[in-house]
């Protein structure tokens, strides 16, 4: 947390200064690409897929509607969960959101992606239902990394202490995962473990990691939909992924030794 708040690293106040990288598009492409293709300037414009989707929805395509309702179900539930308490209240917000989308289809303008537009509607509904104390809080404030539990990615004990000749080097290196870890990682048990680990995260960390790594959204989509700066998005993503990795490490090492 300390380090994350210092200059240039951590919460990033300069929204305009961020480097625009290409919208990664598909689920797989956006997942863990270390490099991103050439920059585009139209990140906040709907993609051709968005335009086609909205045209289909205006045209009465029920399958397209059902598909997008299902696809955005988890993301919208988590967004609602930032404002309202309990599953039932979140589900109510989500249903309300879709009714708003249905009514507003003709008002969708080509100034944001479809997902961002739906998220805006949902955030407004959730805010209204969330009660007085949350009503005026913008998403960006709710998801501010400065108010989110930070801390280092790993227990500081894992590294050699200041004063040591190799201070900052590994004291307890990452436990190597067993050769069959790959298989274990896809097993149902491990999936449940990751789900539990996600549930343990702060709401801000959880929604960012889930959108990125489970729903397969690009960082640009997440930033636009959650009103996050790219820097803040990365801080939350880093905290989330680091914690989930640590849970997997404990699990896989224990399984290995069992």
């Amino acid at each position: 947390m300390r380090a994350a708040e210092r200059d240039g690293w951590g919460p990033d106040p300069s929204f305009g200064a961020w480097r625009r990288t290409a919208r990664a598009g598909g689920r797989v492409a956006s997942r863990y690409a270390a490099t991103v293709a050439a920059a585009r300037d139209d990140l906040f414009q709907p993609t051709p897929e968005d335009v086609a989707l909205v045209a289909a929805l205006r045209d009465g395509d029920e399958q397209a509607f059902a598909r997008v309702v299902d696809e955005l179900n988890g993301p919208l539930l988590r967004l609602a969960g930032l404002y309202v308490q309990g599953r039932a209240a979140a589900e109510e917000v989500v249903q309300d959101t879709w009714l708003g989308v249905i009514r507003g289809l003709d008002r969708f303008e080509a100034r944001s992606s479809f997902r961002t537009w739906v998220f805006r509607i949902a955030a407004n509904r959730a805010r209204t239902q969330g009660g007085r104390e949350r009503r005026d809080i913008p998403l960006s404030a709710l998801l501010d990394p400065a108010d989110d539990p930070g801390g280092p990615a790993l227990d500081p004990e894992r590294f050699l202490a200041p004063g040591d000749e190799w201070a900052g080097g590994w004291a307890v290196p990452p436990h190597r995962w067993a050769p069959d870890a790959e298989a274990q990682l896809v097993a149902g048990e491990t999936r449940a473990l990751i789900q539990d680990a996600l549930d343990e995260l702060s709401p801000a960390q959880r929604i960012v990691m889930t959108l990125r790594d489970i729903d397969g959204w690009s960082s640009e989509e997440v930033c636009a939909a959650l009103e996050l700066t790219p820097g803040n998005q990365r801080v939350l993503l880093h905290r989330a992924r680091s914690r989930v990795r640590a849970v997997l490490e404990r699990h896989l090492v224990a399984a290995d030794r069992a």
Partner: peptide, 20 residues
């Protein structure tokens, strides 16, 4: 190793079921 484990974590998270 640490970097590879972060990558594996991301891939594993991608296999978690979405909420229908």
């Amino acid at each position: 190793v640490y970097l590879e484990q972060m990558r594996a974590t991301i891939v594993a998270a991608g296999r978690v079921d979405v909420e229908h």
